[in-house]
Amino acid sequence: MANLRAGLLGVGMMGRHHARVLREVEGVDLVAIADPGGDPHGVSGDLPVLTDIDALIAEGIDTAVVAVPTRFHEEAALKLAAAGVHTLVEKPIAHTVEAGQRMVTAFEDAGLVGAVGHIERFNPALQQLRTRLEQGELGEVYQIQTRRQGPFPSRIADVGVAKDLASHDIDLTAWVAQSAYDIVAAQTAHRSGRDHEDMIAITGRLRSGVIVNHLVNWLSPMKERVTVVTGEKGAFVADTVTGDLSFHANGTTPVQWESMAAFRGVTEGDMTRYAFARREPLLVQHEAFRDAVLGRSSSAVTLAEGQHTLRVVEAALSAAARRDVVTLDD
């Protein structure tokens, strides 16, 4: 079977990594790159940098990666769907829920694979966490908490921290727990003079009853990417910067200090840090997309899943504006 002919739209801060990884994926050939801004990072190699999506499609591509600013996702995706091109769109799926739904519908109607680049699902720490939860190692899950904080990235200008970063946490939480969001509330802040929010705190509940909390900002001098899942037998802690996963077990040794035992509820048990293979998440994501296009079993994030994540983000922003709790419908 001939390799898939892949095209890449956008070679900015994220697109440059797609350009590198696409050249490493078995069964895929990167044959065309387009970016109206040229090639600022020098990743095109011997490929000419085309000017727009129409020129990219004209190269006869089978698949495409859309890594342009969010407000341009819909236009590019709809043209690719009309041309019969399977497409992976960077997260978030679109700048509005309405645009995202038009994308979902276009690819479904065309019978094409449409995927969203929610890369955190492919982080080795979270993949290990998901597997261990499925195997019952935590027992009943009570709460999922995430912290995603760091300095402002100059690459982002068209969306706020909720769509750019909190979308990661919302997607990975629903995926790890295998449950959609039920209700959300939130608080936002604008501290840096930009049009969009640069800080958000989200709290909510999944349909499974699991409580969720997400702290996300562009205002912290330290970079933090942590997911904590607390349950019946203890707590898992996943660090997606390092790819580490550890487990803090509830203790089985009685606490002799009676008043302290009553205060603490559970005791501290053993802490285990797991050893496992760590592959680059972006490469694993591209392999999943390739497999979906080839009709194989795949863990690629579908456009419909990306649309649900965007709906939760929009609900959180609405809840913050209204100072209310928003219920997600089916």
Score class of each variant (00 low, 15 high):
G265Y: 08
G27Q: 05
V212P: 10
M14Q: 11
Q145C: 11
H118D: 03
I156P: 05
A300F: 08
L133F: 08
A32P: 14
P153Y: 05
T267G: 15
R71W: 08
Q128D: 02
K163A: 07
A77C: 15
H308S: 13
D195V: 09
N213L: 04
T51N: 15
H196M: 10
E74N: 06
A19N: 07
S192N: 15
G204Y: 01
E120S: 14
L245H: 12
G251C: 12
Q307P: 04
L172S: 09
T227N: 04
K91E: 01
E140N: 09
P124W: 01
E232D: 12
T267D: 10
F289G: 09
T105P: 03
A261M: 02
T242N: 07
A235P: 02
E74K: 15
A166Q: 07
L129C: 07
P151G: 09
D46K: 15
A99C: 02
A64C: 13
T253H: 06
D54L: 08
Q101S: 08
N213C: 09
A316Y: 00
D239K: 08
M199N: 03
A115W: 06
T51K: 15
A82M: 04
A106P: 14
A115F: 04
H286Y: 13
L206Q: 05
F236C: 03
A106M: 12
I200C: 04
T146L: 11
A83K: 07
N123H: 13
I61E: 03
M199I: 03
A99R: 10
M1G: 13
T252G: 13
V313K: 05
L282V: 03
Q307H: 15
A249N: 10
H248K: 13
G111H: 11
L4A: 06
I144W: 00
L303C: 03
R225Q: 13
R311P: 04
